[in-house]
């Protein structure tokens, strides 16, 4: 899981500099920032815009387009549950509802204590062992609600 580090201008600059030699460096920069800080810190935007010679509005446009990029860090545990058709055929809808009920959260929400974020995902490529989920980056086939919740309750 991404470790949330304190945002420092030097840290941001260093991450941006790592990717400037690439063709189309913005997504690699954003991924790297999020891996490092747990989200795309607002402070990083002017630096990205300046380095790539684009506007801050364009940076915002890209960040907000993609589901992966966060403006705030996620909870300490991140639980992703597949909502797609193959998982639906094996009870994926009920799995998602059961997990949300057990956690008392809605899709995309983080618990008040910052312990857990639960998100929908559209296909993890585990369609032959559905329903599928991902707990803190670890994949689960034939997932069960209680086991998933137990893993993020530790």
């Amino acid at each position: 899981m991404p470790a949330s580090q304190t945002v420092s201008p030097a840290g941001v600059e260093e991450i941006i500099a790592r990717h400037l030699h690439r063709e189309g460096p913005l997504l690699p920069i954003l991924h790297d920032l999020q891996d490092h800080f747990g989200c795309i810190p607002a402070e990083a935007r002017p630096a990205i815009a300046a380095a790539l010679n684009i506007t801050q509005a364009e940076v915002h446009g890209v960040i907000s387009f993609y589901h992966d990029f966060r403006e705030e860090p996620a909870g300490r545990h991140v639980l992703k549950i597949c909502r797609s058709e193959a998982c639906q055929s094996m009870g994926g809808t009920a799995l998602g509802e059961a997990v949300l009920t057990l956690l008392g959260l809605g899709w995309g929400e983080t618990s008040a204590d910052g312990r857990i974020t639960v998100e929908p995902v559209y296909c993890l490529g585990l369609c032959a062992c559905a329903p599928a989920a991902m707990v803190n980056g670890k994949l689960k086939g034939r997932a069960e609600a209680k086991a998933l919740v137990a893993e993020v309750s530790a």
Binding site: G24, L27, P28, H31, F65, Y66, D68, Y122
Partner: peptide, 10 residues
């Protein structure tokens, strides 16, 4: 060649 990673957009 190089790997590039998507960001959750179908």
């Amino acid at each position: 060649m190089e790997v590039r990673v998507g960001a959750g957009a179908y």
